[in-house]
Nucleic acid binder design. Sequence first.
DNA 1: CTTGATCCTGTAGTTACTACAGAAGTTATA
DNA 2: TATAACTTCTGTAGTAACTACAGGATCAAG
Lengths: 132, 132
Amino acid sequence: MIAIGEASRQSGVGIETIRYYEREGIVPKPVRASNNRRLYSAEDVGRLRFLKKCRDLGFRLADAKTLLDLSEGDGKDCRIVKELAVLHISYLRAKISELRRLETALYELTANCDSGNVSCPMLSQLRSANDR
Amino acid sequence: MIAIGEASRQSGVGIETIRYYEREGIVPKPVRASNNRRLYSAEDVGRLRFLKKCRDLGFRLADAKTLLDLSEGDGKDCRIVKELAVLHISYLRAKISELRRLETALYELTANCDSGNVSCPMLSQLRSANDR
DNA sequence: CTTGATCCTGTAGTTACTACAGAAGTTATA
DNA sequence: TATAACTTCTGTAGTAACTACAGGATCAAG
């Protein structure tokens, strides 16, 4: 059993974040040593690492918890997992194309923008009343 | 001079958001009617619309305010505008490639995932101790 | 005169942490 | 043994940019 700092190091999840996950009921409350300090097992660290990977993949915390619960449950079949993943992929794709759109729009706005212009064309564009 | 509801309609900025912008000092406090209700001029609506466009382009609110201030100032030259825009474009590009990476990773994780699997390969992958 | 729409202020909730403050306990060094 | 440095504890507040009330006042229409 290890202390929270070591659990943080082993899982890659920050100390404050671990305590936050505990408060939020994302992970079970760990046992306490006689001095009231939290003690984590290898399993606890595994959970934290699992959550970290999910978060790194862009899942929201609630979904990460769902996945964690699924992975601890008996029926580990894929349905819900795949559903969540597919949903998240389409969310990512939508986000990507939106950002690409923004990038293009912004690039075009700056195209005529050159130091020395008396009146900035980008600002003019943004100030214009038309379009939406 | 129009009421806040109409200003919201004309600018596309929500009523609560308009009041929020006022609280935060993003837009100047509007004049008040004798009944204490806010009254907006065409110029005020213009500011809101400007902010809306900036936000739609993905600028953070603070940057939107900077742009707004620039567009109201005397020296409307492009330097700071372009700087902000270029910075934001590179931020967008970084975000896009990050999301693409996530999409690929997630897609690969789901590849072997098929309803009916007894043990979900995606969960196994996430539970595995290796890599980070 | 009543109904429904709009507006007001002020506060709290959202997401997922992060950053303290102040106290207590632990470990390493002199 | 004293002291310093480190770690942990609880609890609270801050972040970004809104959004959602609650509870009350005012307004316009019929």
